[in-house]
Amino acid sequence: MLRFLTRRLLSAVLVLFAVSVLSFLMFFALPRDPVTAMCPKNCNPARLERVRQELGLSDPLYQQYVGYMKGIFVGRDLSSALGGHCDAPCLGYSYVNSEPVTRTITRVLPVTLSIVLPAAVLWLALGVGLGMISALRRGTLLDRLAIGFSLAGASLQLYFVGAVLLLVFCYTLHVVPVPHYTSIWSNPLDWADGLVLPWVTLAFLFSAIYARLSRAQMLETLSEDFVRTARAKGLSKSTVYGRHALRAAITPIVTIAGMDVGAALGGTVVTETTFGLQGLGRTVWDAVREGDLPTLMATVLIAAVFVVVANILVDVLYAFIDPRVRLR
């Protein structure tokens, strides 16, 4: 286990290193002058030159990279116009937002986490639960309803569902406030109140996929020989389904869920835009539109970290579930 973790962490570091080098090259080594790309509209040559100086853009590329990475791990000194010393993890300075990128990220990341994590719990519970029930009640009315639900979820678009829910529950019935973000630490109730619509929307759409997946998995598992053996032993239905079938059926779902959550944490652009929440996804979107390279670079790295960490977690979880998987 320890050896596995060390190895996985090492390879994760390698992956992240590669991602950072590649994205750095892409953003800073493009033929387009990054300063112009970064500069807000009215840029005179003098200002351009100052930005170039402040960002150290005349240094050789490798030096810039080392400087950037150093900033992440131990912090670095930016020019005094940019606020002087920038503590680790320093992700550079955004002229577009006129603030260090780290400050932007610490502001928007909790928003995305608050949207995605509770929504993920909801969609997994709902999706897997529904899928299992409809597999066990195969062919009944309940099963058909569940299938209809998943079809609806799979064919609807997030912005559409989001807009309808907003219109109905927020603007017409006034049962929920306009989506907004409050820190969970300062006011948990308001936090939940402000995010319940995005949760429900995400949960509806994703649980549709998970319901279909779990139903198929469960049906397949129910035809396995070991389920027959469990019944032949005289076990009760709930034990056969719960302990024997569910455990085997859930394994592939864990993998997919890990990937989905990891990817969603990297930003839920559509959700955030639909509900007007300023999370990581909106930030990426704005950065792309405005050519805010330092912010973009930082969000790419963060998304990569989420995906890599989710991967490791999935592997560890998998090994806990399936003894045939060896962590080596």
Partner: peptide, 16 residues
């Protein structure tokens, strides 16, 4: 009681 043909698939892979 019953013994099945293929003991690998007839035993649950996740339990001792």
């Amino acid at each position: 009681a019953m013994i099945f043909q293929d003991p690998l698939s007839a035993l649950h892979p996740y339990y001792t």
